[in-house]
């Protein structure tokens, strides 16, 4: 059933800009870094000395986090927006599918698209490093960590944005919340550790990266459960 829900969601985003948006994030981040390195190659190489990979990851990471934050809000809004635009919630929920499957299908679509984004970013980062002629001794663990741990740490926000976007016909509020979240996340250095807006950043740079990702996973599941409980009880108009 999970597979069937996902296949339906994928069918619905045919000819939509959703795929392009998911690709745009990583391509934009790496594109900007390409310009950055193109213009300031000597400066940046000197700055990071004998660990050019680490430098690249740091540079990429600083752009990746805001892109992830706003990207997840946009993806969640657009995937739920398909149903709002089609007036299809009533049709969908009058079919022999459970509300859990409908809710789960939407969340999984967003999770899948964002996972694809993170993977594309990993590949592009790798490609860029190799093109710049960095040491072929690629720091795999570092690259994989940076690509996927922030994704896990951002799970509470994926859950929140999916929930808001699904239950609200007006997408202005969820997207405004998403935008504020993105800007807030830029001040993660000033935040106490319990604030989730700082977790994706912690998942990139700090020693407690795994803890940040784990907390994200746990809180994300919790928010999903709350969101689902709300959706399951809601009358559909």
């Amino acid at each position: 059933m999970i597979g069937r829900m996902l296949s339906v969601e994928l069918l619905k985003i045919r000819r939509k800009l959703l795929w392009m948006l998911a690709a745009l994030g990583p391509v934009g981040v790496i594109g900007l870094q390409a310009v950055n390195y193109g213009l300031r190659y000597d400066y940046l190489m000197k700055l990071y000395g004998d660990s050019p990979w680490e430098g690249l990851l740091q540079q990429v990471g600083s752009l990746m986090l805001p892109a992830l934050f706003i990207g997840l809000a946009l993806v969640a809004s657009m995937s739920a927006g398909i149903e709002h635009q089609a007036g299809a919630w009533k049709q969908l929920l009058a079919l022999p599918v459970t509300r859990l499957q409908v809710f789960g299908g939407k969340v999984m679509l967003s999770l899948l698209l964002l996972l694809a984004s993170c993977t594309l970013l990993l590949l592009l980062t790798l490609g860029m490093g190799l093109l710049l002629g960095f040491d072929p001794q690629v720091p795999w663990a570092e690259i994989v960590r940076q690509s996927y741990l922030p994704y896990l740490a951002a799970l509470p926000f994926i859950a929140l944005q999916s929930w808001l976007s699904i239950v609200m016909a007006n997408q202005a509020l969820p997207l405004t919340v998403g935008t504020l979240g993105m800007v807030l996340s830029m001040f993660s250095l000033l935040m106490p550790a319990w604030m989730p807006w700082g977790w994706p950043d912690r998942a990139v740079r700090s020693a407690d990266a795994l803890q940040a990702a784990g907390s994200g996973l746990a809180l994300g599941v919790l928010v999903l459960l709350i969101g689902y409980a709300h959706f399951a009880r809601k009358d559909v108009s």
């Binding site: 045919r14 635009q85 299809a88 009533k90």
Partner: peptide
């Protein structure tokens, strides 16, 4: 079919 038809316009 409730009220107005549901359709995905782009499909």
């Amino acid at each position: 079919l409730v009220e107005y038809p549901s359709y995905y316009g782009h499909l």
